[in-house]
Nucleic acid binder design. Structure first.
Lengths: 344, 344
DNA sequence: CACCGCATCTGAATCGTTTCAAAGCAACTC
DNA sequence: GAGTTGCTTTGAAACGATTCAGATGCGGTG
């Protein structure tokens, strides 16, 4: 059924070793032999069996990336950055979607480990320190993405979520808002907690501001819509005058629910700010303010750190933390002259 | 470094065959032996080497999915559907992003073939008939996604793009528009051509309507913005009164460019409709009309067909074609009471 | 012409798992 | 007690690519 090196060797009239050399070390092979072998490969339609190759090599040329939610453009952007950087190093990326579910996360890690992937990038749901430790002991390096590493053994690439949260709420306060709601969850996700902490700091710095926390079951448009409906249903006096959503998908859902009911005006009644600054924010009913993360760069950097660690496992671990950037738009009362040029 | 079955066997005091049986056919093994083996596995931290397993088995439990653009929520939804269906069959999905680039597409197909993936799902850029034929000859089944198969040898799951295009433009005409622009490209992508053909049909059915074609280099927000700026820059009399965008990302970009310049009102001056009906459309500045495709279902169905073909390679090929559905919103002058509940 | 160095080629050994024919063993039948 | 049955276990063979120590051949040298 499948053509193997042996058959190629036979057809070309050389040994299997020579075939392998043509494939992997062409400089060691004479012009004539190379010709014969490449011809035979073409004629027979030979395709290298990666499993056999890996078995011998001990490690694959694939790296695994586990994200919290593939539907979130932030993560597809991270994946894109990772893919680029990996491709440049001759690696490819296997993308897993944990859907904020620790079990699925664990399943993907198992899968990656069985595959002896080159390395793992992960945006974890819960605490994976122990897990990554074991992985590394068995020779698979790992890098945390969008989360600061808790110990010295793991590199990480992230954004200062606390600062991001602080900046977001500071901005809301600067716009005159005082009764602020934080929408996010579950709190097992570190980003959710950190952004809240940042929010709290900004509140603490402003004596007359108050923070209310509304918990969601996930960071999705649907959950945002649910909370938005709750807020819209309240009597006007009991509504917050600003909402900081833990990410843009939530913000999107919130906006839909608030505006479409027609009862709440954004930003007049309620200001709104999200987090991530995904491309779609500019095009929202009311362009939504957000806190921008350099998503592609995060992916690229994570791969770079992974490569460094894999080349020299004793290399010092790095915790790279980017500083997020406030992007103010109409949803927080800033008249947006917002022709930003995102993308390439 | 790595623990193998041999070491597990030694530690447990049994043969390697027994270890393998514990892993793969536990019912064949006595309770006592199973205990000893599982204990040894735990103690040693044994993790199966998938490469070796595959080498023996001849085929992996991973399937490859190549999409045109991971950043397009339509494709992540398809991927999600595929992932679900695959997981139910004990398979996992390797996601590749061709970025509408035939070379990248080809690279992913090579990669998948070397990996001896279980099967390939592909939303092709150009003509891959020949390529898939060769793949199948070597034992890897393939299913086309979001594209009708050109021959009898390949199954496909798609949406009737011609009908979708027709419905979209028919709707624009019904809303009183006559000078209609189609925005899309490159035309190597079949969906782009088919949707145009549908548009043309609707135009042909209405003697006083005219169609103008504006070509883009890709189906992205950025390209949409570029064309939108061109349209906005025209004198009002030379503008179309309706735009049909080949997909939602383009529509999003168009909307941004049209509305944000402040010169063109949507839908008053220019009506706008997209294609795919991604989640974000409801939340746009002006909620954008679209043609909905059952994206998750497409992914699930594709996996189903792949499984069928892999079980019995002689099974009859199917071309499943879903009928897309018009979703009218404010961007085409329909007052949207649009609380649709998308997602789970 | 014997010897050397160099470039090239060879093929057995190896990676770790699964499979499967054969063997071992205990219980049971006649 | 010989024979049979059925359950477990064994261990060598196989999967296909890569590696590497040694073989081969060739031109050049003294």
């Amino acid at each position: 059924m499948t053509v193997s090196v042996k058959e190629v060797a036979q057809r070309a009239g050389v040994s299997v070793g020579t075939v392998s050399n043509v494939l992997n070390h062409p400089e060691r092979v004479s012009e004539a032999a190379r010709r014969k072998v490449t011809d035979a490969i073409r004629d027979l339609g030979f395709v290298r069996n990666d499993a056999a190759r890996q078995l011998r090599a001990g490690r694959s040329t694939t790296l695994g990336l586990v994200v919290l939610d593939v539907r979130n453009p932030f993560f597809t952007d991270v994946a894109l950055g990772a893919e680029d950087a990996a491709a440049a190093a001759g690696l490819s990326v296997l993308l897993g979607n944990s859907d904020e579910n620790p079990e699925r996360e664990s399943t993907y890690l198992d899968l990656f480990e069985e595959q002896r992937v080159f390395g793992v990038l992960i945006s974890p749901v819960g605490d994976v320190g122990e897990r990554l430790h074991r992985l590394r002991e068995r020779g698979t390096p790992a890098v945390l993405v969008d989360r600061v590493s808790a110990d010295e053994t793991t590199s990480s690439v992230s954004v200062d979520d606390v600062e991001g949260g602080r900046v977001a709420v500071e901005h809301l306060i600067a716009q005159g808002r005082r009764r602020i709601a934080y929408v996010g969850g579950p709190f097992a996700i570190r980003q959710v907690t950190d952004r809240l902490e940042g929010a709290q700091r900004a509140i603490d710095a402003s004596p007359d501001a108050a923070l209310e926390v509304l918990t969601t079951h996930g960071l999705t448009v649907l959950e945002g819509r649910r909370i938005g409906e709750q807020i819209a249903a309240r009597p006007a006096a009991r509504r917050p005058d600003a909402v900081f959503a833990a990410n843009d998908l939530l913000a999107m859902g919130l906006l839909q629910a608030l505006v479409m009911q027609g009862r709440v005006r954004v930003p007049d009644d309620v200001a709104l700010i999200g987090f991530d600054d995904i491309d779609f924010m500019t095009a929202a009913v009311v362009p939504i303010s957000s806190v921008r993360q350099p998503s592609r760069l995060i992916g690229e950097t994570a791969v770079r750190l992974l490569l460094a660690e894999s080349e020299d496992p004793s290399v010092e671990r790095q915790r790279i933390e980017f500083t997020p950037e406030l992007v103010a738009r109409a949803s927080t009362g800033v008249v947006a002259e917002d022709q930003r040029n995102s993308g390439a």
